[in-house]
Structure formats: structure tokens, C-alpha cells
Amino acid sequence: MISKERIARINALAKKSKNEGLTITEQAEQKKLREAYLAAFRGGMRNHIEGLKVVDEKGNDVTPEKLKKIQKEKGLHDR
């Protein structure tokens, strides 16, 4: 999870970039903050997807085998 302060800084730099432009230092900071944000987002999304269990209309587990393997390795869903 990325802190509220870092998100606020990302937004402030984006606003400044649109209005007046950024210095080289600010551009580097913006790039670093964006990369950190994307890494946190991707990690959260990966955890969310790895925790999913796919069920069809009849209640049968149709979770892909690749996902079941990952879940078994992590001890999720007792598979």
C-alpha cells in the first residue's frame, strides 16, 4: 500500500506538470513515485487474483489449474 502523502505528491506533481511544467528533478521524482505506485497496485492485484475461486452456474469449481497450483503453494482454499 502506498501512503496518502505519496499519492498526494503524485497528484501535486501531475497538476504542476499540466499547469507550468516540471524541473528535471521533479520529473525524476514523479517517475520514481509512479513506479512505486504501479508496483503496489500490481502486487495488490496479484494477491486479489490469486485468492479467487471460479465457480460455474452449477456450483462446480472451474478455477484454472495454473491458479489452483499457485493457491496450493500459498496454502489458499485448502487445495
Results as ranks from 00 to 15, higher is better:
I7Y: 12
I7F: 03
I7E: 12
A8K: 10
A8T: 11
R9E: 13
R9W: 02
I10H: 02
I10S: 07
N11E: 15
N11D: 14
A12M: 01
L13R: 06
L13T: 05
L13Y: 07
A14C: 09
K15V: 15
K16L: 02
K16G: 06
S17N: 15
S17C: 13
K18M: 14
K18S: 14
E20P: 13
G21W: 10
G21Q: 10
L22N: 10
L22W: 10
T23N: 13
T23R: 12
I24D: 15
I24Y: 14
T25W: 11
E26F: 10
A28K: 15
A28T: 13
A28P: 08
A28N: 15
E29F: 09
K31L: 13
K31P: 02
L33H: 05
L33T: 08
L33Y: 04
R34G: 09
E35G: 02
A36Y: 00
A36G: 06
A36L: 05
A36K: 08
Y37P: 04
Y37D: 06
L38S: 03
A39Y: 06
A39S: 12
A39M: 11
A39I: 13
F41T: 02
F41V: 11
R42V: 07
R42Q: 09
G43P: 02
G43N: 12
G44Q: 04
M45Q: 04
M45R: 07
M45K: 03
R46M: 08
R46V: 10
R46N: 09
R46A: 12
R46E: 11
N47W: 04
N47F: 08
N47E: 08
H48N: 06
H48F: 11
I49S: 02
I49M: 10
I49T: 06
E50H: 09
G51P: 05
G51L: 00
G51F: 01
G51S: 09
G51D: 01
L52N: 03
L52F: 00
L52D: 02
V54D: 06
V55F: 00
V55L: 00
D56C: 04
N60Q: 05
N60C: 05
D61S: 02
V62I: 08
T63Q: 04
T63V: 00
P64N: 05
P64V: 12
